[in-house]
Design a protein around this nucleic acid. Structure first.
Lengths: 235, 235
DNA sequence: TGATGCGAAGTGGTCTTACCAATTTGTCAA
DNA sequence: TTGACAAATTGGTAAGACCACTTCGCATCA
C-alpha cells in the first residue's frame, strides 16, 4: 500500500487523503451526505475540477458515491463497497499472477466452506440444491456460469465474514469465471463439476467442516490445473 | 464486483471500462505508454476533463500511472499495483468489519507461514533474526511497528505468492498496525510478541510447515482479541 | 387542511479555455 | 560530437459556461 514519500504530490491526491482521513477519524460517517463539490473544493483549497478528480477516485474506491443532482455520500463503508475494485486483478491478470490468484483462492475457499458447514441454515441448503438443479438442467453457457457463481456465493455468504465474501467475490468475478469455463477442455467437465458441487453440498448438509474443506479443495484443484495450463501456454 | 446495469452511466465510467477492456484484451500492455490525455479524449469521444477523471480513477486502481510532462503509462499490472487500494479497508474499518478482516488474516497468515517454512532461504532467515533483534533493542513506537511489519513482510514474501503478499500487505498496512499496537493494553505484550515471533522463526528454521502454521495462528490470536475488544467497545 | 403539480433553485456532469509545471525534443554553438 | 538552452509537448490546475437531474417551495385544487 502506498506510503507516499510526500515529495511530489498533487492537490488532488491531497484531497483524496484528506477525505479518507476525515472518514477514518469519524468526522464523516457511513451514509452521510457530504458538502457539495463546490463547497468541498473551497474548503480544501482546490478547484472544482481537481476536487471532481478526487471524488471520482474515492468513488471507484467504494468510499464515496455521487448521486446526480442530489449530492455526494459516504457509502456504508462495508467490505463489498471498499473492495469494489478488487476484481480488477482477476479481470486483468494472466500467466503467473493468474496462478497465484487461484492459489489464494485455494487457501480461502476451503476455509469458507468449513465455516459454512458450521453455519449454513436450511434456506441456504435449499438454495444450493436449487442452483445445482438449475445447472443440471443446462442452458446457455452464461446461465451455467451464473448458477456456478451463485452456488459459490451462497457458500461464501454462509461463512458469515463479509470481508472474506468480498475478497472471494473479487477473485471470482463473472468475467473470470466465464474465462475458466471457456478454458475447460475435457469432456465430462460438467459432470465432474456437478459431482464436486454435490460433495461440497453433502458436507454442508452433514455439518462436516473438514469434509467441506476437503471437497472445496478438490473443486478448486481443477481451476488450478486450468491456471497452470494458461501459465504454460504463455511461456 | 460491479456489473453495472448500464442504464445510467457517465462518459467517464465508459472511458474507464474501455481502457480496462483494452488492457484485458492485450491491446495495451504492461509498461506501455498510452496516447496523450488529449488524444485519448478525442479517441474515446469525451472532453479532456472527463478523460482526466477516468485516468485518475484508473490511477488509484493501480492500472495506470501518470508522469507529469512525460505521459500516461500502463503499470506492470502486478498484484502489488492492482491491489494498491486494498489497504483502504484496513484503514477505514471498525467494529464488525475490523473483526472480520482479522479473521481473514487468521486464514491467510498461517497458510503463508506454512509456505514460507518450505521455501524461505538463509538470507530470509537472517533478515528475520535482524528484525527480531531490532525489536528487542527497542526504540520509538513507530520503529517497533516498522520492524514488526517487516518481520511479517519477509515471511509473506518467502511464501512466494505475490497476490497473497499484496492482500496481506493491505490487511496489514502501517496505519492499521500502529492502531493495533496503540490498542494493546496488557503489560508484557512486547515480551509475548517476541516469543510468538521466535516461535514462528524457529518453525521456519526447522522447515516445519505445520509448526509455522500453528505459531502464526497463535500470533494472530492476539490481534483477534484486540479486534473483539474494539467491536465490543463500539456497541 | 392535505395532496398534487409546476417552476425555481441547487447540485452533479460535461465541456471549453487559459495557463502553469515538468519533461522531452530540437537547434545551435563550441 | 557534445552540451546548453529554447521550444514544444504533456500532465496538472483553475475558472467559467452550460446541461441533466433532483429537491424544495409555493400555489392551486379537492
Amino acid at each position: 500500500m502506498t506510503e507516499d514519500a510526500g515529495v511530489k504530490t498533487t492537490v488532488t491526491q491531497r484531497a483524496i487523503d484528506e477525505i479518507k482521513t476525515r472518514i477514518a477519524m469519524g468526522e464523516f460517517t457511513p451514509g452521510q451526505r457530504l458538502p457539495t463539490e463546490r463547497d468541498l473544493a473551497a474548503d480544501l483549497g482546490l478547484s472544482r475540477s481537481s476536487m471532481r478528480e478526487a471524488i471520482r477516485a474515492l468513488t471507484v474506491m467504494g468510499v464515496l458515491e455521487a448521486r446526480h443532482g442530489a449530492g455526494i455520500y459516504v457509502t456504508r463503508l462495508e467490505p463489498g463497497d471498499l473492495l469494489e475494485t478488487f476484481g480488477v486483478v482477476a479481470e486483468i491478470s494472466r500467466g503467473d499472477t493468474l496462478l497465484h490468484l487461484v492459489q489464494v483462492r485455494k487457501i480461502l475457499e476451503p476455509a469458507a466452506a468449513a465455516a459454512a458447514a458450521a453455519r449454513i441454515d436450511d434456506e441456504g441448503l435449499a438454495r444450493l440444491r436449487a442452483e445445482m438443479a438449475a445447472m443440471e438442467r443446462g442452458g446457455k453457457a452464461e446461465e451455467i456460469v451464473g448458477h456456478d457463481m451463485e452456488f459459490h456465493r451462497i457458500i461464501t455468504e454462509a461463512a458469515g465474514n463479509p470481508v472474506l465474501a468480498a475478497i472471494l467475490g473479487g477473485l471470482n468475478s463473472r468475467t473470470f469465471r466465464a474465462r475458466v469455463w471457456r478454458g475447460y477442455r475435457e469432456e465430462g467437465v460438467f459432470a465432474r463439476t456437478y459431482r464436486e458441487h454435490d460433495a461440497i453440498y453433502r458436507a454442508l448438509l452433514d455439518r462436516d467442516p473438514d469434509g467441506a474443506r476437503i471437497a472445496a479443495a478438490v473443486h478448486i484443484g481443477a481451476v488450478e490445473d486450468w491456471a497452470r495450463r494458461q501459465q504454460q501456454e504463455e511461456e
